[in-house]
Design a protein around this nucleic acid. Structure first.
Lengths: 215, 215
DNA sequence: CTCCATTCTGTTGTATACATAATGTATGCG
DNA sequence: CGCATACATTATGTATACAACAGAATGGAG
């Protein structure tokens, strides 16, 4: 994979991020710095720096004199996230259609990969599924050519993964449904129908929200 | 005012943020940690932590083995920011009108304060002007009741201040113009005309962008 | 038995010392 | 004179030691 020459801060950052995103039990807990330092194999300093970086991802919250808190995902937050995603994705959809820059091939490729995943999602496949799901939406956003929006969207999406991983295991047949909804979005984009695309996006996000809210 | 018992990290954070936002010369420079530590009166540790926090505001960028870089504002970034602001503000405008929760009094009050500022903007008045300008738009966003969008918008706006402060000095009569455009937005909101509001917002942001681009 | 004060333990916050990597400079060679 | 290389300097990255604070445990008084 990538560099084995990662700095201590990066190591700690990657470790913590991965842990928080995959282990639901992390939510609502305070993180012990020296404990983490021992686990990761570095001193407290890079651990603290990693925690500060995770603040910008919204994965931890710093409480003075108490430490790093991992805020749980609330239903309201998910609703709000879907609303914002809808705004940004609809905007991008309109732009790429108007400018004739729909990344049809790229998105279809991502969609095909997602459709090729097995129905039974083991943990690894689940993460791959989420990665491809995220990628599909990100590709739409990126095609609009606004780097600021791309970065903003990318950061937002992170917190959805917090609940997405575990939610996937509790919902059967969601893979097919997601792929179908993605296909609807892509078809609307290719057909050049802004209103239809917006509708497909809103529908997809509404369904996603409802599923995530069953927690 | 607020606590004199600010921690070292907070002190450093406030100092650096203020410095970067007000001093245009900071842009494009690498920040020297021990120099800053001496200026602020703390050790390097809280300074480094403050720098990491500033990353999430987009005010500094960490370059491995090089340090903290203050990325200059580009014209493209400003354009992209105005596009994103337009998307979020238009969305909020639609919502608050549909839900009948236009914060007319609050926004009018902010607008009045802004209009009462002197035409000749000394540095202090300029900062107050920018504060009220930011507040006006934030009040619209907040009224929509989506905390995630509010926080997102708030963070975005920060980088605009980077160029806004200096740009204000080079533009005569902008105060009246801004107030008039703000009044147009507010009038449209009060009248309940979504399309008109969106138009007023887009116009205001376009004018703002054009002025900021003259750098 | 309950409540409050106090001590004690453990964690975060800060300072400092050291390790490591990058940059600028000087020197020698082509 | 230009360029490459070795070196010195300076900055960042990390570890560790200490200080300050918060929360829990404990003991005593009512």
């Amino acid at each position: 994979m990538s560099g084995t020459a990662a700095s201590g801060r990066e190591k700690a950052y990657a470790y913590l991020r991965e842990n928080i995103l995959t282990d639901p039990d992390m939510q609502g807990r305070f993180l012990n710095e020296q404990e983490l330092a021992a686990e990761i194999g570095v001193s407290r300093t890079p651990v603290r720096e990693a925690l500060l970086l995770l603040v910008s991802d919204g994965l931890v919250e710093l409480i003075p004199q108490r430490g790093a808190y991992v805020p749980p995902v609330t239903g309201r937050e998910m609703s709000e996230l879907m609303e914002l995603r809808g705004v940004l994705e609809s905007h991008s959809a309109r732009l790429v259609i108007d400018q004739g820059v729909v990344p049809a091939r790229t998105m279809q490729d991502t969609l095909d990969q997602q459709a090729a995943l097995p129905d039974e999602l083991n943990p690894e496949a689940a993460r791959e599924f989420i990665r491809l799901d995220t990628l599909f939406h990100q590709q739409l956003i990126d095609a609009a050519g606004n780097e600021l929006i791309s970065r903003t969207y990318s950061k937002l999406h992170v917190r959805q993964i917090l609940v997405g991983v575990s939610a996937l295991f509790r919902t059967g047949g969601r893979r097919e449904q997601v792929c179908a909804e993605h296909q609807d979005i892509l078809d609307a984009l290719v057909s050049g129908d802004s209103a239809k695309a917006q509708q497909a996006i809103d529908h997809h996000l509404a369904v996603t929200r409802d599923i995530l809210l069953r927690n």
